[in-house]
Write a protein that binds this DNA or RNA. Sequence first.
DNA 1: CCTCCATCCTGTGGGC
DNA 2: TGCCCACAGGATGGAG
Length: 274
Amino acid sequence: MPELPEVETTRRLLAPYLEERRIVEAEIRHPRTGRRNENPQDVVDRLKGQLVHRLDRHGKFILGRLESELTWVMHLGMSGRFLIVSPEDQEIAHTHFIARTDRGDEIRFIDPRTFGFIAVFTPDELEAELRLGRDAFIDLPRTPQLAARLNGRKAPIKSLLLDQRIVAGLGNIYADEVLFRAGVRPTRRGGDLSGQEMTKVRKAIGPILKAGIAAGGTSLSKSGYRSPEGRSGEYRRKLFVYGREGDPCRRCGTPIERLVIGGRSSFYCPDCQV
DNA sequence: CCTCCATCCTGTGGGC
DNA sequence: TGCCCACAGGATGGAG
């Protein structure tokens, strides 16, 4: 569920509690949550006692820059969320990771589906484990670089936008919203886009993500995204196509259509998108 | 290298 | 109301 805007919202809310704070205690409660390290216990051993200088984000990954060479990596997967609480606060179901800071705050990671993970990597491991293109929001490549990556590709543009090695951060919702804004059908082969279409897609990414972040992300359901403060995102009301099958296009009134591309639901306006 | 597909999980929302 | 099942915002590894 969480895509770049939800991850950025999470990062911004966690930062004041973690930056320039020391992790005095850490605990992995569910082995799957620590699976990206050789041994889940490595996460705890490496994190304990470390000072967190800064919280960064690359695509959908939150990166804690530690005082050593290590990087604390957090990924929300499909159902992950963080909570900032006091140690005495009651624990909710699916709490799979806990860290306590020297200020006495507790950062808890809740993840029912366990697709998310918490890891601590050396520089070499980080390089090997995170194969990411440039960040879609703060480091978006210029059109020629983007075009070069799509050149010759036969896969649908939608699938290519979801490929984190090309550009990091877009997920199923925002990829559809970007393509609507660009006026490009999700089924179009990436390599077949004209230069002008490529420019439109590229120029749509920034504003869509910016609006998503400003709204605090998108929450689709009751069990959907929640910020570390427990708030839902408000971007759902602003969506043009995602989840709107059969509803009138907000631009032209034509019913929005749904189809499956690369195993993912895709929504588009048959009239506005060519 | 590219494309497609299955897989890892639990919760829920819609249809009957 | 209750039951069942398709489906869910992601990433990866393997087959072809």
